[in-house]
Amino acid sequence: MNATNVVSAILLLAGACFAALGGLGLVRFPDVLTRLHAATKPQVVGLLLILAGVGTRFGDATTAAQLVLVAAFQLITVPITAQTVGRIACRLGELRRDLLLRDELGEKTRTD
């Protein structure tokens, strides 16, 4: 057990925890929009931590560059997926309006 291994283990475990919590959120949150929050943030952070853990374990530049590439594509694509799903949910009315404290999108659609 050296220091690199410990750091890598901590990062991997932390990442797995975030991924698990994201999954828990998916199950527990009430509608599409709230579930999107669970599907984006803890999931991305979980993956970033796991990539960091893998990177520390390997410790060479080529692997690191490839991991950075994975991270970059996650950060670019995950919000776009979330936006697309959210937008479709809103357009189809697949959301719990009763859970919304304020609904300015609904107001806009009604006035259009």
Binding site: F18, L21, G25, P30, L33, T34, K41, V45, C90, L100
Partner: peptide
């Protein structure tokens, strides 16, 4: 902010009593 938001959302997922409501804001 990504990290703090992950912590926030995770906390909402664990919190007893289910999550709070949201809002659609323009």
């Amino acid at each position: 902010e990504l990290f703090s938001s992950a912590v926030q959302v995770s906390w909402q997922a664990i919190r007893y009593g289910g999550p709070a409501g949201g809002a659609l804001v323009s």
